[in-house]
């Protein structure tokens, strides 16, 4: 039964690529969200879309065009851009510009609305064998990086000036984060869709921050909840009779998880307020601001 075998192959590739991308995005998302770079993922995916559209129009291979373009953009944005064009404005400008350019190129080069839709909202069928290998390599780098440099990542994320003053090479970490984020987003965006990939970066960290109080807890919970939400969303997509869209389903599952964790966090803080009298001690007495 060659046809069924082919479907099974697609299924496995999509599952593996998605799972690895989700894991990497959630870990990178923790430092990005905490450093106030939440919109970077969104901006980068739009830039990636522009690059993919240009590559498709000229008949080039998509990844060799998109990955360097997005890495360059990530580097520019994470370094804070120029003094005159900073932060959120730079991200908004680049992402809208590249989105518009991508749509124009795609339309002029004779792409159909179906192509456009699958770029925007993703499709499971985009996972190729090359993607699986790239994803494996990416996850190995991200996971070992997090394992070996965990405390340095904490220090750079928590207080960059202090980290730099005490001799941590912060610009190297920024460059590495930029490259890894860019690759993650390009690999994930064809499956999750240009408009939805950034949620894989942002949601897990925000979900974890509802309930966790330590950096370690946030990192672990973000990774675990990202993987769980992905698996639930993927199962819903595969087994639903009406063919749910992958990206949108996974984001919706994440949204539900966020709601759930927000409720847990709220309930906990209320219970704590009931049980604990306001903290006071001889030493802290005069130390409130």
């Amino acid at each position: 039964m060659p046809e069924q075998l082919e479907i099974l192959q697609y299924f496995w590739k999509a599952l593996v690529v998605g799972l690895l991308v989700t894991l990497c995005a959630s870990l990178l998302g923790v430092t990005l969200v905490l450093r106030r770079f939440s919109m970077i993922g969104d901006g980068l995916s739009h830039i990636g879309f522009g690059a993919l559209a240009v590559a498709a129009a000229f008949g080039w291979a998509p990844l060799p065009v998109a990955i360097p373009a997005v890495i360059a953009a990530a580097f520019l944005l994470l370094r804070g851009g120029g003094e005159k064009l900073r932060g959120d404005a730079a991200v908004a400008l680049l992402s809208a510009g590249c989105l518009a350019l991508g749509v124009l190129v795609l339309t002029l080069s004779g792409g159909s609305n179906v192509d456009l839709m699958s770029y925007m909202f993703g499709s499971l069928l985009y996972a190729k064998s090359a993607d699986v290998l790239l994803c494996l390599a990416l996850s190995v780098v991200v996971l070992t990086g997090f394992g070996l440099f965990y405390h340095r990542i904490f220090s750079v994320t928590f207080d960059e000036p202090f980290a730099r003053a005490t001799g941590v090479r912060t610009s190297a970490y920024q460059l590495l984060t930029a490259i890894l984020t860019a690759v993650t987003i390009v690999l994930g965006m064809r499956m999750m869709g240009t408009l939805l990939i950034s949620s894989l970066v942002i949601f897990p960290a925000l979900i974890a921050m509802r309930v966790c109080k330590s950096f370690f807890g946030v990192t672990l919970t973000a990774a675990a909840s990202a993987v769980a939400c992905y698996l639930i969303g993927f199962a819903l997509t595969c087994f639903s009779p009406r063919g749910l869209p992958t990206g949108a389903t996974i984001v919706t599952v994440n949204l539900c998880a966020f709601g759930l964790f927000a409720c847990i966090g709220w309930a906990r803080s209320r219970r704590k307020a009931h049980c604990d009298p306001p903290h006071s001690g001889a030493v802290e007495g005069g130390f409130k601001t």
Partner: peptide
């Protein structure tokens, strides 16, 4: 989100 001890220890980096 960080424990105070995590913050203090990062001084040793």
């Amino acid at each position: 989100p960080a424990k105070a001890a995590e913050v203090v220890r990062s001084g040793f980096l």
